[in-house]
Amino acid sequence: MEEASETRHFRTLFISDVHLGSKAAKTDFLLDFLRTHEADTIILVGDIVDGWRLKRSWYWPQPCNDVVQKLLRKARKGTRIVYIPGNHDEFMREFPGVHFGGIEVAERMVYEMADGKKYLVLHGDEFDVVVRNARLLAYLGDWAYDTAIAINVVLAAVRRRLGMPYWSFSAWAKLQVKHAVNFIGEFQRVVADEARRAEVDGVICGHIHHAVMEDIDGIHYVNTGDWVESCTAIAEHSDGRLELISWGHKVGALSSPKRATRLVPVYLPSSVADVAKEDGVRAA
Results as ranks from 00 to 15, higher is better:
Y59I: 09
V158W: 10
V129P: 09
V212I: 15
V281M: 09
A114E: 15
A106H: 10
V129K: 11
G240I: 09
L136D: 12
E126Y: 03
V264S: 01
V129R: 12
D201W: 09
Y166F: 15
D239C: 03
A180Y: 05
T261I: 12
D217I: 00
D146S: 13
L244S: 06
F183A: 10
I184S: 02
W52Q: 06
D279A: 09
D279R: 14
I15F: 03
R56L: 15
S271M: 08
P265C: 01
V177K: 05
D128L: 08
V181W: 08
V264P: 00
G78W: 05
H19R: 11
G116N: 04
D279L: 14
A235D: 05
G185F: 00
N65F: 08
A134F: 10
V130Q: 11
E90R: 15
H207Y: 06
V49I: 15
E194I: 06
T79P: 05
A260N: 10
V68F: 08
Q188K: 14
A283Q: 07
T261W: 00
G86C: 03
G46S: 02
W143A: 14
A276M: 13
F187E: 02
I43V: 15
V181I: 08
W60E: 07
I219D: 01
F10P: 04
V98E: 10
R76I: 04
D142M: 10
Y267F: 06
K74V: 05
D17E: 06
L254P: 00
V228G: 01
A233Q: 03
A233L: 14
K77H: 12
E6D: 03
W247L: 12
L71A: 06
G225K: 06
T232M: 08
L140V: 15
V131C: 11
D239F: 03
D89S: 04
Y221E: 06
S168A: 02
T147F: 10
D32K: 04
L31A: 03
S270H: 09
I42M: 14
V190Y: 01
A211S: 14
F29H: 10
G51M: 06
M109A: 06
H37L: 07
G206E: 03
K55S: 13
N152I: 07
